[in-house]
């Protein structure tokens, strides 16, 4: 073990010479110069503002487009018709008498649903 201990003592604090020290220093300083030259160019304020405003406008237009598409979408043949709603919508162009009849019809339909539900639950008494 003496050989190992002697070796450790010899090695302690020894620093190897840097091969090509001057060239390494020049390289380091040149890299620092290059890094500084490549710094990003400041963007003018007016350009940033225009970019932000146009991005926001684009998002708003897209949302409006989607909303309008949904509002004006026509029901397909397979879409189930909600008679209560249809009855209500027709009311705007109806005469008062017609509106009254439609209201009665609506109430009758609602009652019918209620009766059917009660029958269903009566039949399946849990």
């Amino acid at each position: 073990m003496e050989r190992i201990d002697d070796l450790m003592e010899r090695l302690k604090g020894q620093m190897p010479q840097v091969p090509g020290a001057d060239a390494l220093t020049d390289n380091i300083m040149a890299t620092i110069e290059e890094t500084e030259d490549r710094k990003p160019v400041a963007v003018p304020m007016w350009l940033s503002v225009i970019r932000t405003v146009s991005s926001v406008a684009a998002v708003i237009l897209l949302m409006l487009f989607v909303r309008l598409k949904n509002d004006f979408a026509e029901p397909s043949e397979n879409t189930p018709v909600n008679y209560l709603e249809v009855a209500g919508n027709e009311c705007e162009e109806c005469s008062p008498a017609e509106r009254y009849n439609l209201r009665i019809e609506k109430m009758r339909l609602m009652n019918r649903r209620r009766i059917l539900k009660e029958k269903y639950y009566a039949n399946y008494d849990f």
């Binding site: 620093m15 220093t25 380091i28």
Partner: peptide, 28 residues
């Protein structure tokens, strides 16, 4: 300070080229 950093790098990395790169990265 180059020699001190190179000394550490050689002893850690056991490779002279890697040590030179480490010295450069350190000072940058």
């Amino acid at each position: 300070c180059q020699q001190m950093v190179y000394s550490l790098a050689v002893k850690m990395l056991a490779d002279t080229e890697e040590a030179r790169d480490a010295v450069q990265d350190t000072f940058i």
